[in-house]
Design a protein around this nucleic acid. Structure first.
Lengths: 212, 212
DNA sequence: ATACTTATTATACGATCTTATAATTTCCCT
DNA sequence: AGGGAAATTATAAGATCGTATAATAAGTAT
């Protein structure tokens, strides 16, 4: 009957599995980075955002870099899944699938200053941390491979030639990333629909044999 | 004859004009950012790099953000000047001038992880600081305008059509930036010469009317 | 129920950060 | 040669940061 009495006002808490807690902390880290950029990467801020004390981060991740790398991984995987889902939901023709990929790339889910803000922080870390660089390389190659598949299917269906499809996918990725970056840094410079049109123009150049 | 005696070991120093000192501090800031990324943005580190005491930064710039914005400006202007000089030194045909622009864009002066590292830091600040955003907008429009001129001259000389040359320049800029980003984050993904080829392929698509 | 594992809190320590203020040196000007 | 403006050093104050350590609560198995 008698509830166990908590000594001296120490905070009560809910115990969670390591995986759940790690994910909560990773998502809290992402929210902090969205809000404050590099300045948001701090044990104290992230712990406060997650509603826990600082020690938990040390306990689950050791050092904070490990938490940030983990946040990078879950964010990256989530975005790629969203992209692939949009492609899977499209009509199963190479043209429609590529269109779907372009459309979702310019949708508010990805074409968003907050999302870019997170990536900019990650890029900064990738340049100075082998751990982050390893994550980035894996995720980049997954992304390029997805585009490679889309472009290859289109070329096969329409019968035009591509000299080096891997390089082609790299170029298309670069175009998407570059437009994303430019628009997020300065949304007045062009409209998302115009960005989509520029991507379609790029594909049109591909069709016309500019990369054969 | 008697040298003026310095009291109690206080450091001697050389007095400089405000412009010179500001530039020295700006360049020291750039070196710190190259070396340590966001972590290099610190009054203490920059002052040490410049060989002065911290107070000088406060004296000349007020708050550190102002110094970083100034560093952004001098770096941005320097790079654009280098690009324009390469164009000016090329043979005066639209084709050669555009080629020169592409070549210098992929030269070690720009295709460099340290240079990208500085820009990544700037981008992060642009997303959270109106002051930095204002600088970025001005510099981006100068950059796009330069490309717009190159592409317009080529179209006029060769007689192909471009529906919206401003958007075209934005796309080409995005491609360049995207390739720059991808290579610096992961230099193994492609070779600079391959990047140059991809840019030429993009121009070939333009020639073939993909943007008409 | 009771013991045990460990997730979590609480707290402390040393380093580094930004900014403010006062003292001092340098150099130009007359 | 000497006075004065301002460039520069020196120092301090308070905030925040990362990490380590010990104490405690929560849930699980016995």
């Amino acid at each position: 009957m008698a509830r166990k009495v908590v000594a001296k006002g120490r905070a009560r808490f809910h115990r969670e599995t390591p995986e759940d807690r790690r994910r909560q902390l990773g998502e809290a880290a992402l929210r902090c980075i969205v809000k404050h950029g590099n300045a948001g990467v701090s044990v104290r801020q992230i712990a406060a955002e997650a509603g826990v004390t600082q020690g938990l981060i040390t306990h689950h991740f050791g050092e904070i870099n490990e938490l940030v790398a983990y946040a990078f991984d879950i964010m990256s995987e989530g975005l790629l899944q969203s992209l692939l889902k949009a492609v899977a939901d499209a009509e199963p023709t190479p043209q429609k699938r590529l269109d779907a990929f372009i459309n979702v790339s310019f949708s508010p889910m990805l074409f968003d200053r907050g999302v870019l803000g997170v990536w900019v922080v990650f890029w900064g870390l990738v340049l100075h941390s082998p751990r982050m660089s390893a994550s980035q390389q894996g995720e980049y190659s997954n992304y390029v491979a997805a585009i490679e598949g889309l472009l290859g299917d289109l070329a096969a269906a329409e019968g035009f030639g591509i000299a080096d499809i891997r390089l082609c996918a790299i170029a298309f990725t670069a175009l998407l990333d570059g437009l994303w970056l430019a628009w997020c840094l300065n949304p007045a410079s062009f409209k998302p629909e115009e960005g989509m049109q520029l991507c379609r123009n790029w594909v049109e150049g591909l069709r016309r044999g500019a990369y054969a």
